[in-house]
Amino acid sequence: MAQRPEADVIRLTLPAQAEYVGVVRLTVSGIANRMGFAYEEIEDIKLAVAEACTNAVNHAYDRAAEEMELSVTCRVFPDRLVIEVADQGKGFWFDREPADLRPIHPDADLDDVAEGGLGLFLIHALMDEVDVQVSEGVTVTMTKYLRGDGVACDDRADSEAEA
Rank of each mutant, 00 (worst) to 15 (best):
A38H: 12
L47C: 06
D128R: 02
D62F: 09
F92M: 02
V113Q: 04
E136L: 13
L146T: 11
L126Y: 02
P98A: 09
G150I: 02
G150F: 03
I31E: 04
A65V: 15
V23T: 15
V140H: 00
L81M: 06
I42Y: 03
A7Y: 12
Q133K: 11
V85P: 08
D112H: 08
V113Y: 06
L118T: 06
A38Q: 12
G137K: 05
D8N: 06
A56D: 10
L26V: 04
G117I: 02
V113K: 06
Q17K: 14
F92Y: 04
L126A: 08
E43A: 11
A38V: 07
D62H: 14
F94H: 09
I42S: 01
A18D: 08
V49T: 00
E84I: 09
A86K: 15
D111S: 15
R34E: 12
V130E: 00
D87H: 10
D149E: 10
E84V: 13
V57R: 00
D109P: 09
A163N: 13
R80N: 06
E19V: 13
R147Y: 13
V28P: 06
P5I: 00
G30L: 10
E40R: 14
Y61Q: 02
D79M: 12
I83M: 12
D79C: 15
V9Q: 02
S71H: 04
G91F: 03
A163E: 11
D158W: 14
E51H: 01
V21H: 00
R4G: 07
L81F: 12
T73P: 11
V151E: 13
T27R: 04
S159A: 15
L47G: 01
V28R: 08
S159E: 14
E84L: 10
A65P: 05
W93P: 14
R63M: 10
L120M: 10
A16T: 04
K90N: 07
V138D: 00
Q17H: 15
D87E: 06
N58D: 14
D107F: 10
E40S: 06
A60S: 11
D149Y: 09
C53P: 01
A99L: 13
D95V: 12
E67K: 07
E136H: 12
I123T: 05
M142A: 07
Q17V: 12
